[in-house]
Simulated scan of single mutants.
Amino acid sequence: MYLADEAWTDLEEYFENESLALVPLGSTEQHGPHLPESTDHVIAQGLAREAADRTGYLCTPTINVGVSPHHRQFPGTMWVDAPAFRDYVESFSRNLTYHGIDRIVYVNAHGGNVQHLREVGRRLHESGDAYAIEWMWDESIPDLVNDSFEHNGPHAGPKETAMVMHLRPELVHDDRLADARDGGWMDFDFAGATVNGARTFYDSVENAANGAFGDQTDATPEKGERLFEAATEQLVELCEWLAAREADELVPRPHV
């Protein structure tokens, strides 16, 4: 069920019987020369809508702009400051609790959002208003992701390329895949971007002139479909697990 497509009378019935909502979040930021800036929110929305369709749970509109200042040097990248993002998502979530939602899954597809969504979840948990958890699609299927690509890449790499090939193939510049690989950092390794254990970079452009990592030529729509199906299954199972929890399992434990 997609909230924005429903009449309030139908939503009223949902809120009377269910208490879980999926909130897709992504970013609008550079994803190399071959992918659209909508990559992250396309993936998040696709997964959240599919899981909602399969389970009957509510999916909200997508939060399209996230915490992305580390991509600011690339034209068109949009971002909001981290405190503003956290406050917005918290307010957005409290809006849901007003209607009776007390379980929220943040369906996230942007690494820059992770720590901030977890902080919002902590705030909502501590206040007792909701149990909100952050879910990152590729972290739910790490073995499949790693086995699918020889040179994966943490950003604008073959995993995201394959997912967009599956979801929105018309947005992928297939003729630029080799350029994305050759102009970026194919063999990216976080250890190669540290000195004595200290992270030595702040912005994406410091490591890849075109903002891309990994071997994009290894992506195919078929691989994207396999990743999408596997991640959707994980998300559906997570929703069912959360919906089955008793209310007293989701509130803060008392002081020892």
Rank of each mutant, 00 (worst) to 15 (best):
residue 176 R to L: 15
residue 117 L to N: 03
residue 199 R to K: 14
residue 121 G to C: 04
residue 121 G to A: 13
residue 65 V to M: 07
residue 175 D to F: 11
residue 121 G to E: 11
residue 102 D to A: 00
residue 92 F to T: 07
residue 217 T to L: 12
residue 183 G to T: 00
residue 87 D to N: 12
residue 189 D to P: 04
residue 179 D to C: 05
residue 175 D to G: 08
residue 48 A to M: 04
residue 44 A to E: 01
residue 25 L to E: 01
residue 39 T to G: 03
residue 168 R to Y: 09
residue 217 T to G: 07
residue 2 Y to F: 15
residue 2 Y to A: 13
residue 28 T to K: 02
residue 89 V to L: 07
residue 254 P to A: 06
residue 188 F to I: 09
residue 84 A to H: 13
residue 154 P to I: 08
residue 6 E to A: 14
residue 179 D to N: 09
residue 219 A to V: 11
residue 174 D to I: 12
residue 236 V to R: 07
residue 200 T to G: 05
residue 208 A to R: 05
residue 27 S to T: 05
residue 87 D to Y: 10
residue 36 P to H: 03
residue 149 F to N: 01
residue 70 H to C: 09
residue 211 G to N: 07
residue 255 H to S: 13
residue 144 L to M: 04
residue 237 E to L: 08
residue 239 C to F: 04
residue 174 D to M: 14
residue 245 R to D: 02
residue 194 T to G: 04
residue 28 T to H: 11
residue 212 A to W: 08
residue 71 H to N: 09
residue 228 F to Q: 06
residue 187 D to M: 01
residue 167 L to Q: 06
residue 59 C to M: 12
residue 149 F to C: 01
residue 254 P to H: 06
residue 96 L to Q: 00
residue 9 T to F: 13
residue 237 E to Q: 04
residue 51 A to W: 13
residue 146 N to H: 10
residue 66 G to T: 09
residue 208 A to Y: 08
residue 119 E to M: 13
residue 91 S to R: 12
residue 88 Y to Q: 09
residue 153 G to S: 02
residue 124 L to A: 00
residue 143 D to E: 14
residue 243 A to E: 03
residue 134 E to T: 10
residue 80 V to S: 03
residue 83 P to F: 14
residue 17 N to P: 00
residue 243 A to M: 02
residue 77 T to Q: 06
residue 205 V to R: 15
residue 135 W to L: 13
residue 28 T to Y: 13
residue 206 E to P: 07
residue 159 K to F: 09
residue 115 Q to T: 13
residue 78 M to N: 02
residue 55 T to H: 05
residue 138 D to Y: 11
residue 240 E to R: 14
residue 43 I to Y: 04
residue 11 L to H: 07
residue 212 A to S: 15
residue 120 V to S: 05
residue 197 G to K: 09
residue 203 D to A: 15
residue 249 E to V: 07
residue 171 L to Q: 04
residue 6 E to M: 14
residue 80 V to W: 12
residue 61 P to R: 06
residue 169 P to A: 01
residue 218 D to F: 09
residue 68 S to N: 08
residue 27 S to E: 02
residue 174 D to T: 15
residue 223 K to W: 12
residue 49 R to L: 15
residue 206 E to A: 07
residue 183 G to C: 03
residue 18 E to C: 04
residue 150 E to S: 06
residue 43 I to P: 00
residue 244 A to R: 07
residue 103 R to Y: 02
residue 253 R to C: 06
